[in-house]
Nucleic acid binder design. Structure first.
Lengths: 202, 202
DNA sequence: TAGAATTTCCTACAACCGTTAGGCAACTCG
DNA sequence: CGAGTTGCCTAACGGTTGTAGGAAATTCTA
């Protein structure tokens, strides 16, 4: 079935690795091609362009993140929250370029269904996987359907915001360490989620 | 004193406007030059390169944000928190490219003092201005110095995280509206800040 | 085993962006 | 009015994206 060589998945995986090495923005087609030992035009057999490459990396990494996170998730309530949040933060610290890929992606609101690449659809699907994991955490607190979307947004905003600012170096120049404030953040988040769960049933 | 024309501030202000129109990543030197009616090399009289331009825009926008936010800040405790958070969110919604500029900037940890452009120093100073505003909000809750850094990180993470995810369209595809969950987030944040303030003095 | 089909990869090329070098023109001040 | 200063220009180079078309390698088939 033709000559063997690179395939789309290998290209995208290499791009994800390169993002961790050089930063997501530095992942260009030419750099990636050099890194793979081929010429730039070769990559156009596997990806349709630079934006497709970035979107595909996002989808690929979102799937990796969902895999990692779901593997780490265990327990209920506070234990589950800590396991979930730590898994995401560890992922971001271990693979900053990959984590950047998950956030540096914008889905235009009026995105027509025909003008969507396959990669965009894959990224949306993978994003939903991660959202479902967040929902699992919230549900384990006993939060009902009425409030679960709100609780997911609150939790995701806090976790994502903290990790983003931490990675940007915002917390690096002042005591206490980011390492010590992180558990406290999760503790307060646990309190808030508990409150939401108890406030609804009265 | 020579021939009048563009100056550095005008170039950077135009770049900030362009970021709102086309997105921060689309602000290139050539596009900016076309937008200003000059040729690309002309801009090198006012900026030292592409990275300097981006950093300068970040510093410029961080100052604008601090101006806007401090103008909107009024009251104490919960009122002040809402005024503060709403001001930042309104800024981000009104000027998404500018808000992106505030976040898309990374300060390398081991940044030597000599290898720093003026723009980097200005960005750091402007960033501190915004951090001081956050500190003002936290202080108005009566939170002591022992916990103020922690409280600032919690508050900033939640606000920044929510705005980022909202702007990325994450909250757009599900009920309830992001408009309705936002006040609830601030309410829970108010509760948490109040708890931190009361828990410290016993 | 020979040939066909398929797929990969290449060279060549055009367009655009960032950047530097060097020169012309306009404005201000003495 | 002349000198100095400053802003903007053209020219040119290297690097990146993207397209077109062709050569080579591998697998399937006769």
């Amino acid at each position: 079935m033709g000559r063997p060589g690179l395939n789309r998945t290998a290209v995208i995986a290499a791009a994800a690795d390169l993002a961790d090495e050089l930063g997501f923005d530095a992942v260009t087609i030419s750099v990636l091609a050099r890194h793979l030992g081929v010429r730039s035009p070769t990559l156009y057999s596997h990806i349709s362009g630079a934006t497709d490459l970035r979107t595909a990396v996002t989808a690929y990494v979102l799937d990796e993140l969902a895999d990692t996170t779901s593997r780490a998730m265990a327990g209920e309530g506070r234990d589950l929250l800590v396991a979930y949040a730590d898994a995401i933060r560890d992922f971001a610290r271990r693979s900053p370029g990959r984590y950047d890929a998950t956030t540096r992606q914008r889905v235009p609101p009026g995105q027509a269904r025909e003008s969507r690449t396959d990669s965009v659809g894959e990224a949306i699907t993978a994003g939903r996987r991660n959202a479902d994991l967040a929902l699992t955490v919230v549900r384990s607190y006993g939060i009902a359907e009425t409030n679960d979307t709100y609780a997911v947004r609150l939790m995701s905003s806090l976790i994502h915001g903290y990790i983003t600012l931490e990675m940007a170096g915002t917390f690096a120049h002042r005591e206490p360490t980011s390492e010590t404030t992180w558990p406290a953040v999760l503790e307060d988040l646990d309190r808030t989620l508990t409150r939401i769960a108890t406030a609804q049933c009265h």
